[in-house]
Design a binder for these strands. Sequence first.
DNA 1: AAATATATTTAGGAATGGCTAAAAAATAAT
DNA 2: ATTATTTTTTAGCCATTCCTAAATATATTT
Lengths: 227, 227
Amino acid sequence: MPYNDLKMELTTAEENYLKAIYHLSDGGKKSVSTNDIAAEMKTKPASVSDMIRKLGEKEVIQYRKYYGVNITEDGKRRALQTIRKHRLWEVFLVEKLQFAWDEVHEVAEELEHIQSPLLIQRLDAYLNFPKFDPHGDPIPDEFGDVRARPRVALNEMEIDQTGQIVAVKDSSAAFLRYLDKVGAYIGARIKVLDKVEFDGSLEILVDQKKTLFMSKDVAGNILVLQS
Amino acid sequence: MPYNDLKMELTTAEENYLKAIYHLSDGGKKSVSTNDIAAEMKTKPASVSDMIRKLGEKEVIQYRKYYGVNITEDGKRRALQTIRKHRLWEVFLVEKLQFAWDEVHEVAEELEHIQSPLLIQRLDAYLNFPKFDPHGDPIPDEFGDVRARPRVALNEMEIDQTGQIVAVKDSSAAFLRYLDKVGAYIGARIKVLDKVEFDGSLEILVDQKKTLFMSKDVAGNILVLQS
DNA sequence: AAATATATTTAGGAATGGCTAAAAAATAAT
DNA sequence: ATTATTTTTTAGCCATTCCTAAATATATTT
């Protein structure tokens, strides 16, 4: 068994960069450019150059000058820990403190950096080991494993098919508010009643009681776990 | 009405210094020396000099070189806000996440710096507007008002007097663990059954069922709200 | 009141994380 | 294949928050 308990701690800034790199690289599949990181972090490429040199030294990314960065296994694991913390806090904020979907991100962005393995363990238990956050994104377990469910965009479903809303693609405040208003929350059980061929718009039954019309565009932003 | 919404934000480090100064000055009653702040913050006097100059510029303290610092009204208000956040998080950790008394301080020290008035408002409501933290210290309200209860050391109570344990003076991990072990938790209703004149030790009835012997020293560290 | 001791401040430096401007490398276009 | 464009890096600077060492002010002794 390799002795790798002597992990160099990451600062908050480093954690944020690493998370951005993880997302931009699509979970470590692609390599990521300095410019893209700068855009994501709303900072300047020069600052990114500095930071990725440091992250390279800490071996959470592989870095070759002028050729972008690749996240290492260790980096991936750490990024997933941060994502896990972020999403657990989001569940807490929505389920326990009555935050709305579109209010949680900023606060979770701060909370995710609190350093206490025990805190996260207890929070996880307190929330009943949730597997998905309020936006339907999967919560990695403490080993970084993610059990993603196969999801399909609502506009691709056929008449009479059923399922459960598990995520949204566009999680802008405006869209989330719209969904809340029409009653199409995460977790809602839905059935496609009708599909208009002409414009792709749909008629949906929500929770076996409420009927809802939505455009193809809106439906395309809603992800459903089919059943 | 004075227009003072344009408050300069304090950094985490500044907040921590201000809180230390608040405590050392006994809530703003005394003035505090550079050396005392350095000891409290486990840092060097030179660093303190730097910091208090800045805090003086931000007008949360009054600072005259070589003559220590006095906290201003604005500083007092801000310190109380931080203390409020700290203690609310402590309640959360103990009541909801099953932390022990002696495990909460460090984590609360981090959580208290999360910037979100809404979060604190909701947390307060979620915890049912607690007035005291797990150590029995009062939680300031959102305006900084503290409603302290008159408390008496357990060793000063007479035979047959009753009350409720509301705080401890010495909140060291060892002492808290000892209390937990013997079942004398914060909130426990107690009655003095007997007092040994010779050494001042006491026999206590806890929650109308458990009898407990304790030395004068231990009893002197336990604060009781008499009833 | 002068000498000594203590407390406090200043000076200068390190690490972090940001910036601008300029140089250098890689990529695209002719 | 050479020029032009874009991307990335380097160099140099700023603010924060800490440090050590040295200077200076205040407090205490004698």
